[in-house]
Amino acid sequence: MKNELLHIFRNTPFGRETLMQSVYFAKQTAVSLRVYIPAFRQFLMYFENEVVTVDLDRAFLRDPTTAREHAEAVIREGGLEPHFLEPKGFTASTLPDLPVEYAFMCCPRSISDLSTKIGLGHIGPRVRNIIRNASFPILMATPVHKEWRSVTVFFGGSKNAVKALRTGLTVSRTAGCPLFLFTEAGRRPKSHYEKIIEDRGLSGQVQELVTGWLFFEKGEFRNHLYDVPHDSLAVVGAYGHSAIREAAFGSKMETIQTVLPNPMLIVGPRCSPAPGLP
């Protein structure tokens, strides 16, 4: 459903942290939470132009008898009403397909429980695939839950950055928290970025909601990331580059996600311009 956050629950302490972040995010953005407790190793998501197969590892299927109970407890503790997703379509009897109409989806950086892969600097291929195809932003949770009290939008002036900005503005408005812009300018003057914002008709909202603009004209990107508040939700636009291309040429998103331990909201290339917020 369009006004929901999809969460794939894994019945482990690590999964609990992720769920807590989803609960917090859903409360902040006033969307409902829809939890899927996997019953099979794989599920499919039929996006507009591609099917994405998500292979889950065993941790997602661990102890199915308590999974629902655990999830309900966490959600109720957070003050939300638990809604579970019962897949209606099955491509094969053990291969459910999940709907793809959501406002957000929460993914760990990698859909895997190996501790080496949980750390920073690694976004799993399936998660990338979801980002590339999804029509909704992806909330990338951190290993441990921490409440965020501001939103930082990485605004580099590109089309996707504008999408990210729109998303950031909506999140900041509904959550009622301050918004920071982060721009790594290079050679362009600040007015260039201001003009982009104005051209997209966002200047009014930006003036209303943005409390600070972290604008860097020189220096190294990595070092600037220290200025992002530690309790801020990072909103990043992502391109549809393949994993190979990103590994070879690198991208801003890649650097951000390796350096920044904050929770991130990744706005993919196929995201609809206005996320389905109320």
């Binding site: 190793r41 039929y46 099917v51 291969l95």
Partner: peptide, 18 residues
């Protein structure tokens, strides 16, 4: 990592529903 039956039903499902 592919689950499913002997093929034709999968194709029919995909054609009718997806």
């Amino acid at each position: 990592k592919d689950v499913g039956g002997h093929g034709v039903p999968d194709v029919i499902y995909s054609v009718t529903r997806r």
